[in-house]
Design a binder for these strands. Structure first.
Lengths: 233, 233
DNA sequence: CCTCCTTTTGGTCACATTGACCAATAAGAT
DNA sequence: ATCTTATTGGTCAATGTGACCAAAAGGAGG
């Protein structure tokens, strides 16, 4: 369909930056490209925007196809328009950010076209890891390293004045503050004091009635069982 | 050039949301459309993106053409992609936000193609005024009412953790805290306590060395003369 | 049962920030 | 000389934050 792009025409794609937290680490989902350009390179899942649908619709359809999620966090991240960003021709991309719990990703993983990479910023540059594979921004297709960096920064900027952190939780009907703290630490890339974290979260959400304690406590391998909470988003 | 749009093709434009503060009110610059669609309606200045230039470049060129500004605040605001937003066909728009001092706008006003409207949000809906003319979101071309609302909200969200407020000042080498407060009040749409405002601004900028007091004081019609400051951005 | 070990939970303390005020200061206007 | 106005400086209580400390509640191992 879009194998050869007309040189005098402008094309629009969406790219999906699906993020999750696995084992205390922020992860992004990448697909290996099957076609030129950047064949066999890792890239964000993307698709050309159809004339009949908005970019948001395109992105949501693409998401549905990749991950079975209900009520996922979804927002427009940024639009990347540099002239040289696609060697095929003139392609601009509207990137969307998705926050998903790891369980939803894991469920889709077997047989899926994507793989999950641990993501972090080193000096503002994207670094991705899976096992002993290391991908730097330059190893990714297009400007996807920059898109990922933009997404991580967006996440960091919004995590403590929006409810985006809760979107990574496995179960919003029963989670412990320790699990939530793990999410925050993964996003921020630094350790937090558990006592202070508890205080601020409870002040921000429990006293406003958006978050309440469940009766049950979580059984754990080690340590004191944690109280479970429920959050309304 | 783009009088008739191919129905099976997707087009990209930029729209420029130029904002300024005039007489203590937040203003936006609108042009009257000379061509269909929405002929004679007020609209944000816009232009189709050329195949050879990035959307940001297109927007900057358009800005240069409208306002002589050096070192203006300029950022990508949001990308609007709804299917029905342009009756001509399928057009998505990357909107850019510009913050300019009123003097720069006033200098360009005589003979310019735009006009300055006081802008405010009422129940989240854009309302524009110039003299006794009132424009509501539905009176504007395309989805430009929504773009303006998005811009005002972006401004409000960023004004107290970025230096964007200073970009509206007439002279960044000699301004009073009263002038800066006027900008903040125009953006936020509410009054601020001058004593508290002074305290927080000085704490945030003077103690970090980015802002320093000039020797001279400002002569005023009424009231005590204000100390003048300089800011590095 | 008793002692480590781990994690959750609760608390203190000093410090910074904020909103609501009050009051002095330095000009022009009457 | 007094009034008006805007700037500047200050207090005070309430709130939020970072750095700690310590108790509580489990499991694991002796």
């Amino acid at each position: 369909m879009h194998d050869v792009l007309a040189p005098d025409q402008l094309y629009v794609t969406v790219d999906l930056l699906m993020m999750t937290v696995r084992q205390g680490r922020l992860n992004v989902l990448l697909s290996r490209r099957e076609n030129a350009p950047y064949r066999d390179c890792w890239a964000l899942p993307g698709r050309f925007v159809d004339v009949g649908e908005s970019a948001e619709t395109t992105a949501r359809l693409l998401l549905e196809q990749m991950l079975p999620l209900e009520n996922a966090y979804f927002e427009q991240l940024y639009t990347f328009t540099d002239v040289g960003r696609d060697p095929r021709g003139r392609v601009i991309s509207v990137a969307y950010l998705v926050a998903a719990p790891w369980s939803a990703v894991a469920k889709a993983l077997p047989g899926a076209s994507f793989q999950s990479f641990q993501a972090e910023l080193r000096d503002g540059e994207t670094e991705l890891r899976d096992g002993n594979v290391l991908l730097r921004a330059g190893d990714l297709a297009f400007d996807h390293g920059r898109i990922i960096a933009t997404g991580i920064n967006r996440l960091r900027g919004k995590i403590d004045y929006t409810d985006i952190g809760f979107r990574f939780l496995e179960d919003r009907e029963a989670f412990s503050l320790g699990e939530l703290q793990t999410v925050f630490e993964a996003v921020l890339g630094s350790a937090l004091d558990s006592s202070n974290f508890r205080r601020t979260i409870l002040a921000r959400y429990e006293r406003t009635g958006r978050m309440e304690q469940t009766e049950k406590a979580e059984k754990r391998d080690r340590g004191r069982p944690a109280a479970l909470y429920r959050i309304r988003l």
